[in-house]
């Protein structure tokens, strides 16, 4: 059973998750008429910057986060920014988009100079997230768990981060049992996406260098 405190915790996180989104106009820009590779590059860079700012605003609302040591807060955000960005953008691809939008977005990313070897794993990840048909609460909690990963580089007080992450994992575990009674493996599958996300973010550094070269 989800306790009252856990309900309140979930509500705080879900509200913050919905409140802090990429500005609509920026997301729409991605769908407008054809841009050159350079313009695509600038647009995606601008989007990435905005996603980091949105991530920080969301993270400030995670109960307990601001009580952590300031440098640990920065280490957690720096360590999770790319993963949180892919997780968030995966939901854009899995949400029922008006017909054609997903194709336009996919085309846009394919034409932005990112080499093929990185695009395939990225879209595979988007597909595997889409297949889970995650609820909003699950997306918000999974993003929070990604951010509160204790073993990020430069984190000094890993136990403090672990305690926070554990509370969120417990809520998500219960939520998955309640919302997916016929899928006992659902929680494990969600966590499995986090490992896939880590490999994707290892690609990301190489992706950036190859992008600059192109």
């Amino acid at each position: 059973e989800i306790t009252k405190e856990q309900q309140a915790l979930m509500k705080v996180i879900l509200d913050a998750y919905n409140r802090h989104q990429i500005p609509q106009d920026m997301a729409k820009k991605l769908l407008q008429d054809q841009y050159s590779a350079e313009e695509n590059f600038l647009l995606l860079t601008e989007m990435a910057t905005s996603q980091v700012q949105v991530l920080v605003e969301f993270t400030k609302n995670i109960p307990g986060f601001l009580t952590l040591d300031r440098e640990d807060q920065i280490a957690l955000l720096k360590g999770s920014a790319v993963e949180a960005m892919f997780l968030r953008s995966a939901q854009v691809f899995s949400r029922k988009m008006p017909n054609g939008h997903t194709e336009v977005l996919e085309e846009r990313i394919r034409k932005s100079g990112i080499s093929e070897e990185f695009i395939t794993p990225m879209f595979n990840f988007y597909k595997s997230i889409g297949e889970l048909h995650m609820m909003q609460e699950e997306q918000a909690l999974l993003t929070t768990i990604t951010i509160l990963t204790p073993d990020r580089p430069y984190v000094k007080d890993q136990q403090a981060v672990e305690r926070l992450q554990e509370t969120i994992l417990d809520v998500l575990r219960k939520l998955c049992v309640l919302q997916h009674p016929q899928e006992p493996q659902y929680f494990a599958r969600l966590l499995g996406r986090l490992t896939e996300l880590r490999t994707l973010s290892h690609y990301h550094a190489e992706m950036l260098t190859s992008w600059r070269v192109n």
Binding site: T45, A48, T49, V52, V56, K60, I74, K78
Partner: peptide, 21 residues
């Protein structure tokens, strides 16, 4: 503009809450 700041700078600025600077 924010987009040519490094990742850490963007994070520090946003954490400090003075994005408008």
């Amino acid at each position: 503009p924010a987009s040519n700041l490094g990742l850490e700078d963007i994070i520090r600025k946003a954490l400090m809450g003075n994005l408008e600077e």
